[in-house]
Amino acid sequence: MGSTKIPRKAAVGLAILGVFFLMALVGPLVAPYDPSAFVDIPLQPPSRAHLLGTTGQGQDVWSQTIAGARASLLVGFVAGLAMTTIGATVGAIAGTFGGLVDDVLSLLTNVSLVIPGLPLAVVLAAYLPAGTRALLVVLVATGWAWNARVIRAQVLSLRNKDFVAAAIVTGESRLHIVFREILPNMTSVLASCFISATVYAIGAQVGLEFLGLGDMSVVTWGTNLYWASNDAALLTGAWWTLVPTGLSVALVGTALVLVSFSLDEITNPRLRAVSDWTRALAARGIRPGASTPVVRDHG
C-alpha cells in the first residue's frame, strides 16, 4: 500500500458521506412526493409506486428519508461545528494559559461532563420554544465539554514543542499563540473532535425527537422514528417505516467514524505499520505469535 493513496477506510467513509450529502442537497428536488403530504393508503409495504412503502399517515417513506437527511445532517454538522469551536476555544485557552484560568475552565468542563446529557437536554428542550435554534442550543450545551477536554490535553502536550516555546520567547500575546500557533498545528485532532461531535449531535437529535421534543411537524430522521413508533410500527409489522431511517443514521455515523479512524492512521503511522506487518507475515504464511517472528526470504 503506497503512502499517497487514500486509506481504504477513508475512501469507504467518504463515499457513503458523499451519497448522503448528495441526497440532502439535491434530494428534495428528485424526491417523488411531498414528504409531509398524504399520498397513498397508509402502511403499504415497499412497492414500485413507493420504493420504501408508506407510513401510518400515508406518506412516502423514501421521500421522508430524503427530506430527513437534509434536516438531520444540517443540524448535525452545524452543531458539530459549534461544539468543536467552543470546545477548541475553551480547551486551548485552558491549556495555554494554565494557572487559575486553567483551573476554572477545567472545572467547568468537568462539571459539564459529569452531568448526564439526555435528562438535561430534555429539561432544556421542554422549556425552550420548539425549533431548530433551540435544538442547536440544547445539543451544544450538552456536548461541548468532551471536545474541550480532548483539546486541552492535546494543547498541554504541544505546549512544550519548540514552535510554541519560540512564540512565547518572542513575546507574542497568549491569544495569538492559542489561535495562530497552537490550533493550526492540531488540525487532525480538531477534525476528529468535529467528527465525534457531529456523530453525537445526530444521535442526540434523533433521541430527543424520538422522545417527542422539538418540532414534530418538521420531517427529520428523528421525527420519522417518532411517528413510526407512534403509529405502532412494530405492532403492525411495518418494519419499512423504521429500517430506512435507522439505517441512514447508522451509515452516516459509521462513515464519519471510518474517516476519523483514517485520520488516526495518517497522524500515527505506527498504527498502520502494524497492520501492514501482520499482512506481510500472513503473505508468508506466518501467524504472529508472542515472539518476534523470523522471516527468511533474502537467503
Partner: peptide, 16 residues
C-alpha cells in the same frame, strides 16, 4: 539486544 531474546514488539521482524 531485544532481537537476541526475540522480544521486539511489532512491527519488527528478524529477516536473517
Amino acid at each position: 539486544a531485544q532481537a537476541l531474546a526475540r522480544i521486539l514488539a511489532p512491527p519488527a521482524m528478524i529477516t536473517g
